[in-house]
Deep mutational scan, measured.
Amino acid sequence: RKWEEIAERLREEFNINPEEAREAVEKAGGNEEEARRIVKKRL
């Protein structure tokens, strides 16, 4: 699934746990840019 690939990239890029990465992607509706913004806000 594409969402899992996005979550994996976010996890590696921001050094967050898989659960946090998945939550961000879900919140963003699968949009990678939006997920990235969500993760950055949390850091």
Rank of each mutant, 00 (worst) to 15 (best):
E8L: 11
K40M: 03
R36S: 06
E20T: 10
E5D: 08
A35Q: 00
R36K: 14
A24K: 00
K27P: 01
E12N: 15
N31C: 12
K40A: 14
E13H: 02
F14M: 15
A7N: 03
K41H: 03
I38A: 09
E20S: 07
N17C: 11
A7Y: 03
V25R: 00
R11W: 05
K40V: 13
L43Q: 02
I16Y: 01
E20I: 10
W3K: 14
K27C: 07
A21G: 06
G30T: 02
N17K: 03
A35S: 08
A7E: 07
G29Y: 04
W3M: 15
R1V: 13
L43R: 11
A35T: 02
N31F: 04
G30Q: 06
R11I: 05
E5A: 12
A21C: 04
A24I: 04
A21V: 05
N31E: 11
K40S: 14
K40R: 13
I38M: 13
N15K: 14
N15F: 10
R42E: 15
R22T: 09
K27F: 04
E5S: 11
R36Q: 13
R36V: 07
K40H: 07
E19V: 11
V25Y: 02
E4P: 03
I6L: 14
R36P: 00
E33R: 03
V39F: 04
P18A: 12
A7K: 07
E34Y: 05
A21P: 01
E13R: 06
E5N: 10
P18K: 02
K27I: 01
E8G: 13
E23I: 06
R11C: 01
N15S: 13
V39R: 01
E26W: 05
I16L: 13
K41Q: 11
G30F: 02
A35K: 00
R11Q: 15
E20W: 09
P18W: 06
K2M: 15
R37G: 14
L10G: 00
E26F: 02
E32K: 09
R22G: 10
E4R: 05
N15H: 08
E4V: 04
E4K: 08
V25K: 00
K27Q: 14
I6C: 04
E4G: 02
E33D: 11
R9D: 10
A7D: 07
E34I: 02
N31L: 10
N17H: 12
F14E: 10
V25F: 04
L43Y: 04
L10S: 00
E19T: 15
R37Y: 10
E4F: 13
N31T: 12
N15A: 09
I38S: 09
F14S: 06
A24R: 01
P18Y: 08
A7S: 09
N17I: 15
V39E: 05
K2T: 13
R1L: 15
A28E: 02
P18M: 12
N31A: 14
W3V: 15
K27A: 06
E32Y: 05
R37S: 09
A21E: 00
E19R: 12
E32F: 05
A21Y: 01
K41M: 15
A7G: 07
K40N: 04
R11S: 08
E32S: 06
E26K: 07
L43W: 10
R36C: 04
E12S: 11
R42C: 08
E8Q: 13
A24V: 13
E4I: 07
E34P: 01
L10D: 00
E19C: 06
R36F: 08
A21R: 00
G29L: 05
